[in-house]
Amino acid sequence: MQLIVTAISKDYGNIAAVSQVSFQINSGDIFALLGPNGAGKSSIIRMLVGMTLPDSGSILVSHQDQHYDHVPRRLLGYLPEDRGLYPDKSIEKNLLYLAQLHGLTKQKALKEMAHWLEVFELTERRHEDLKQLSKGNQQKVQLIAAVLHRPALVILDEPFSGLDPLNQEKVVVFLKALKAQGMTVILSAHQMAMVEKLADHMLLMAQGKIILAGTLADIKQQAGLQRQMMISCTEPVALEQLQQWLPDLDIQALSSTRFSIKLAPQHSVSASLKQLLNQLELSQVEMQAPDLHQLYLTAMANHQCKDQA
């Protein structure tokens, strides 16, 4: 399923929840919507689900040579931000009900359910009422409910929230499995480490607007965050000496033998390293790329500065 979103906007009274946002999601991609609370992620998700209509702009959905102006319910699997199922019903009854609403036969639903319950290690507990489960396990049931009918598009609003690190990893595996099955996944999240492992494309938003968009590499480039090379020398070296050997680079001394060298995109790692090895002996070289978390914080800080200016 391919989605082309063009200049959508949504206002709630005087508040512009989403302003002129455009993006494209290709079939089989995992697409992440990132941003602080109130950035407009859930508003975009609700427009994609068809719960609200954009005030302006368009959403074009293409699936198997068919085109739609919204995601058809039968092709959609959805995990809402405000989630919950029927607490006084068992896992099996909850899932069976939702699967049958999706049009699955009881037999097919039970088969699909058995597979996903196995994945999330909930098979033994399928007859327990939902209220007896921990929050994390309830979350897993909710995730299963979203994919039981094998939709073409899965939209997950904060799938990692409320999960411990182990279960977050399980969700990463789960999402990779969805991608492997050809499903297109849209997710919103605050757990940057998880997103970095998963997302093919991402959209970083603040106050309803796009701050950064593209692949992780694109975003890093757009953010202008530099790679860092950490070097340790066998003997003490003066900072001024190093600066002479590498005149274009920003170098910081961490100790008399340890230095941090910032590399802009145009600087070659191998060329810089070659230059250094000609002059001195290195005991350790370590590359540090900025992670999504740093990138997110920097981008948000830059956005706030621009906004205040």
């Binding site: 719960m51 319910r73 959805y78 029927y86 999706h102 409910a145």
Partner: peptide, 13 residues
Amino acid sequence: QQRVTEQLYAIVT
């Protein structure tokens, strides 16, 4: 209150 409605909305009209 149990937050089921939004989930159901994505399935049925």
